[in-house]
Amino acid sequence: MTELLAALTDPDLPFLRYGLLVGLLASISFGIIGTFVVVRRISYLAGAISHCILAGIGCGLYLQTVAGISWFTPMHGAIIVALLSAVILAQVSRHAGQREDSIIGALWAGGMSLGYLFIAKTPGYFDPMSYLFGNILLISRQDIYFVAGLDVVILAVVCIFYNKLLALCFDEEYSQLRGVHTQWLHLLLLCLTALTIVLLIRIVGIIMVIALLTLPAAIAGSFAVSIRQMMLLATAVCALCITLGLGASFYLNLPSGSVIILIATGMYLLSLGLSRQSSS
């Protein structure tokens, strides 16, 4: 324990401190957005967005290295592509009807392939593993401000539109009949999901993003009686997973993303068992 505390306060090892701080701050966004993703059952949309982001990251790297646009970082690319795919997916779920899942599948894999091509064409060695599986070494001081800013935006939007978002998730058709602009609200929700995913990728990577977005909320869902409670509980569970995961990965010298996800999965299975026991 003292070893971990020493590492956290060591001025020469800022990455662990940043990682933990970003993880804890991000838990707020994950808990809130994850709850909506779970109750609205759009985890496959979240999955598609996260995989598309590789295209943005690849594009950012390529433009930076080959085209020499130094201000355009992979992070910029990720944000743009995430928002773009949110807009496309909102249109797809509105108009595609039966073929929705095929189109989502195409976006999912297409985005990823495009990203990998960009990375392959970027000279110099670059390991896509850090983006696929997460790497807290990539987290910088700037990310802390970014996460804190996103928390504020998400908290504000959810506080203002709580009732409408709740109604959208519970009964979209009825909310529309009561004069709620459900299409815009759905788009807003997807965009916030996209931004949250961009953050998550730093910590757990593209492939495992859906797990950390949905598992804490799913755990919370089996105990909560209201959405508000579910968000609070999901935030707490997420913070716990990240803290335990980072701690364990530090001691055992394991990749932090995978450890965090395994802890979340274990807790989810445990909660399934518990809620089954209490219901029987």
């Binding site: 009732n163 409408k164 519970f170 004069g179 709620v180």
Partner: peptide
């Protein structure tokens, strides 16, 4: 309460 949603912008 959802029945009363349309009454204002934020849905409070």
């Amino acid at each position: 309460c959802m029945a009363r949603l349309g009454s204002n912008f934020s849905g409070k």
